[in-house]
Each structure stands twice: as structure tokens, then as C-alpha cells.
């Protein structure tokens, strides 16, 4: 009987611990999230997200300054104003050959700013919060990590955009070569 009682207590203990974690999350983070997301959502509604269409149109060129515009500025504005998944609709202003690279760059920036702007992707906030919880448990401030995550994210999406643009360029050339070869064989 005693063993059974001890087992029951151990079993409930698992969920008491879980409940404490849950209470900590709800009182520690939810109030901040509600107020912060309300403020940013209101800001976006008042500014009007359709304004960044013009940035997208300007990012389609091939000069050197178009690269940071297309793979840093545009993805940032896209995820900030349109959030996941509507951010990817801005690809429609770019030529076909840049679309995969822009998608790669934009989708890679739906998590890095979550420590600062949780409205971007609230459903996936635990990609950030899981690790951030560990830092919070240690009693260390989160600001430093949040800002570094967001900044390193910008560097990473810039590189990712360029690498994917090159990669899709190679694949396009290969597909065209294969097509030409097939046409030649068909002709002979």
C-alpha cells in the first residue's frame, strides 16, 4: 500500500513540476507578449503594410547594393510587417531567378527576431523560448542574447540569399543544358 502511495506521489510529482514551469511561463512571459504584440500590431495597422511593396520593387536589380536590399532589408521588412507566412508573398515583385533565394532568406528570418518582436511568428516562439528559458533559469538577462540572435540572423540570411541565388543559377543552367541536349537528340 505504501509503495503504491509512493508511486502515485512520484507520478503526480512529474506534473507538479510541469505545472510550476507552466505557471512561471504564463506569469513571466505571457503578459509581456500580450502588451508587446498589441503595440506592434497596432503600429503595423496604422502604418499600412502595403507600403513595403515599393521596397520589394526596388530590390529586383543586380547592382551590388541590391543584394543587401534583397536579402537583408526586404526579408526583415517582410517578416516584420507581413509576418509568417504572408511575408513570402513579396517574392511576386522579384524576377523568377531570385525567388528561391528570397524565400530562403525570408523564411530563415522568422525566428531570429522572436526575442524582440514575438508577433512575427508567435506559433513558433519556442524555437527561441526553449533555449531562452535556460538562460532565464540561470538568472541571466535575455536582452544580450535576443539582440545577438537578431543581428547574427541578418548576417546569416544575407549569406543564405547569395548562396541560394548561386545554387539556383547553377541548377537553371544545368536544366537548360539538359533541355537543349534533349532537343538536339530529338532533332537527330
Amino acid at each position: 500500500m505504501e509503495a503504491l502511495a509512493a508511486a502515485a506521489e512520484a507520478f503526480i510529482g512529474l506534473f507538479i513540476a510541469g505545472g510550476e514551469v507552466f505557471a512561471g511561463l504564463v506569469t513571466g512571459i505571457v503578459p509581456l507578449l500580450i502588451v508587446l504584440m498589441t503595440a506592434i500590431n497596432a503600429l503595423i495597422a496604422l502604418i499600412g503594410p502595403e507600403r513595403i511593396d515599393r521596397v520589394a520593387e526596388a530590390a529586383a536589380g543586380t547592382k551590388w547594393y541590391h543584394y543587401p536590399l534583397r536579402y537583408i532589408v526586404l526579408p526583415f521588412l517582410a517578416v516584420f510587417f507581413l509576418t509568417n507566412p504572408m511575408a513570402y508573398t513579396l517574392g511576386r515583385f522579384l524576377p523568377e531567378r531570385f525567388k528561391p533565394a528570397f524565400y530562403d532568406s525570408a523564411v530563415s528570418y522568422v525566428h531570429p527576431p522572436l526575442g524582440l518582436f514575438p508577433h512575427i511568428n508567435p506559433a513558433e516562439i519556442f524555437v527561441w523560448l526553449g533555449i531562452a528559458e535556460g538562460i532565464r533559469t540561470l538568472g541571466l538577462p535575455l536582452g544580450d542574447l535576443a539582440i545577438r540572435y537578431a543581428l547574427v540572423g541578418l548576417v546569416v540570411i544575407f549569406i543564405r540569399g547569395i548562396v541560394t541565388e548561386i545554387m539556383s543559377g547553377i541548377m537553371w543552367a544545368r536544366a537548360e543544358a539538359a533541355e537543349a541536349e534533349a532537343a538536339e537528340e530529338g532533332g537527330a
Partner: peptide, 9 residues
């Protein structure tokens, strides 16, 4: 991430 967070904590 949560597993890593627990271990960091």
C-alpha cells in the same frame, strides 16, 4: 531547443 534550454539551466 527546450531540451538544450533545460541543460543550460
Amino acid at each position: 531547443g527546450t531540451l538544450l534550454g533545460v541543460e543550460i539551466g
